Amino acid sequence: MKFADEFRDPAAARGVLAAIAGVTAEIGATADAPIRIMEICGGHTHAIFRYGLDKLTPPGLEFIHGPGCPVCVLPMGRVDECVALAERPEVIFTTFGDAMRVPGTRKSLMQAKAEGCDIRMVYSPLDALELARRNPDREIVFFGLGFETTTPSTALSIQQAAAEGLANFSVFCNHITVPPPIRALLDDPRMVLDGFVGPGHVSMVIGTRPYDFIARDYGKPIVVAGFEPLDLLQSVLMVLEQIRDGRAEVENQYARVVPDEGNPVSIAACADVYEPRPSFEWRGLGEIDLSGLRIRERYAGFDAERRFAIGYGAARAAVPEPEGCACGEVMTGRIKPRQCPQFGTGCTPEMPLGALMVSSEGACAAYYQYGGGQLEPAG
């Protein structure tokens, strides 16, 4: 494939791997005292295991998997609210396919659909807008889910609905942002991290400057990375070189896609439609200040939380994890997926306990698909 093969060239990969091994040795990292680099994005986690990069890099380097899957960090209580919305007879509930199999306390959206709820998978919120045009007698609810990568498309759809006066369209807004959970992880005394591989798709929207605090306030290097194997290997090398040189900077390996200033059109649309929530609950991380987005008052008519009195606008209690499920510990990099006692036994893609096993960006799904389903003891 033109423009893909260049980033998968074995000879070039061997050269970068040799450089990684050399810098790791210069730093003095070993298997007992490795350099711990967190890849924030779940897409990077899958790429690492798909291409076997965890096996090709030296033992003095350890990948720590971060909370970069928006489906995975969604608390179970929000899934329950999705199901409750979908069970309303007047509602056509629309969602991306990733969210369909995420378990709630009662059922998943897939199970609710099997029981007769009108739930439809869409590829874009524009598909939900078209459903609203074609079904004026039904309430069309779009499940707005994702990091800064997907927030612009939802924002633009709300603006379009407002322009057309579509009174039967609303968004259940669960959009979240990347920088606040990184700060929460860095503030956690239990986390030992030496550097970050930053998300590529998110950075395509917001640019690289929102990560300045990582280097400035915490002295940790971060390199925004692409998704091909050579992208990731080069980004790891750039992080290691910063550590070796005693530097802490924000670097952009993915400059062919990511401008440092981000996408001004997307940023403007999001600023018009959303405002920060005072707090938002993350699975495994708890409530994080200013980490979620809600729909501004000027677009209140398109806010499903206001329209149906659900979510953070209604009284709610935290929903505990299923017994034995370690999604929170895996999500925050405290343990690896195979250290969860349920991995591959009580929790499989066919019968998942948690979202990490069914999301296309979930760490458990990556381990199960590319790393085997063998159980490893914790510790």
Rank of each mutant, 00 (worst) to 15 (best):
L233K: 06
R244P: 06
E241I: 03
V258Y: 06
V223R: 05
N252I: 10
I243A: 03
L230P: 09
Q253M: 11
K220D: 08
R256Y: 07
P221H: 05
D245G: 03
Q234T: 15
E241R: 14
P264W: 02
L230Q: 14
V250T: 04
G226P: 07
S235T: 05
Q234D: 15
S235R: 06
L240W: 01
I243Y: 08
L232V: 15
V223P: 01
E241C: 01
Q242L: 00
L232G: 09
V258R: 03
N263G: 01
P259K: 13
G219M: 02
Y254V: 11
D245H: 10
R256I: 04
Y254N: 12
D260W: 05
L240T: 09
L237G: 03
E261M: 10
M238K: 11
A255T: 11
E251H: 05
V258F: 00
V223C: 12
D260I: 05
A225N: 01
Q253C: 03
P221I: 03
V258A: 02
I222L: 14
Y254T: 08
Q253N: 10
N252H: 04
G219P: 06
L233S: 07
I222M: 09
M238D: 08
V258I: 13
P259D: 14
Q242Y: 01
L237P: 07
K220Y: 02
E228K: 10
M238A: 15
F227D: 14
E251I: 00
V236N: 04
V223Y: 04
D260V: 10
E251T: 15
L233V: 12
F227W: 09
L240C: 07
Q253H: 15
V239Q: 05
V257G: 00
I222Y: 00
E249S: 04
V250C: 04
L230M: 12
E261G: 07
A248F: 01
V223N: 01
L237S: 02
G246Q: 03
A248T: 06
E251S: 12
L240F: 01
G246R: 10
V250W: 02
R256V: 08
N263C: 06
G262Q: 09
L232I: 15
L233P: 10
R256T: 11
L232D: 12
I222P: 10
E261K: 03
P229C: 08
G226T: 13
E228H: 14
D245Q: 10
R256E: 13
